[in-house]
Amino acid sequence: MGWVVFGICVWLVGWLTNVWLARQPKSQTTSLAVPVIFGVTLILIWESVVRGLGISPVLLPPPSVIAERFSQSSEILWVDFVQTVIKGALSGYVIGCGAAFVIAVAVDRFPFLQRGVLPVGNFVAALPIIGMAPIMVMWFGFDWQSKAAVVVVMVFFPMLVNTVQGLQASDAMQRDLMRTYAAGYWKTLLKLRLPSAMPFVFNGLKIASTLALIGAIVAEFFGSPVRGMGFRISTSVGQLALDLVWAEIVVAAIAGSAFYGGVALLERAVTFWHPSQRG
């Protein structure tokens, strides 16, 4: 009972603090503090509700148990992280985005192809490509190569569509100016069209960063060596070791946010001139 009362108190205190903070003039501290307080409140409520109502750890382990498990099995988590994120997702991401970028630049030379590729690419990007996973596992074996292949297929089309669109972003006036400078195709591409395509390219890279992790993890549900985050999640669920599953999810969340954050930082460095970055 004490835990439940504690949870209600935490909820009231957290909410009232946030209401008070939200009324203050907006500053960097308040806009950072409010979501942090919200998150901490949520975790504390979770902890107290699970303890107070005696929910079985098989259904929902409290955060403290997850944190404990996280620190205890850091070795397993690290091995899984390397297998899934570094080997599977990252290599597939680099290959897929690289290939899509090169093909987009090639397609861009032919307006005919461009008009064909955009609708088809948009269509394919909406399909459940993740279903290719069993086929890739069949072709490339159980190890990380098949996961990388799934990731390649998943990130390819969003990246292709965004890059092709980006290469059209420079307007006629700017291209004419390059012509009056007697700049050839390659010079125009390097000095004008690629830089102006960068906001679109980074949009594609950001979408692809989430897709890459999802692809690598889900592909492991179809078969993998005895390590990897998807493998660990599906087997631990079978053993009802939900604290380990949650620890893997924490790792996935950190990896996903860091991946996305890294791409966003790179974007800020490359497209510093764009209005959305100057804010």
């Binding site: 999802i214 999640i233 991946f259």
Partner: peptide, 17 residues
């Protein structure tokens, strides 16, 4: 102020896992 940042962050997480 409290929910929106989390909604955006949650999109970067491989939820399907």
């Amino acid at each position: 102020m409290s929910v929106m940042p989390w909604v955006i962050t949650s999109q970067t997480i491989p939820i399907l896992a």
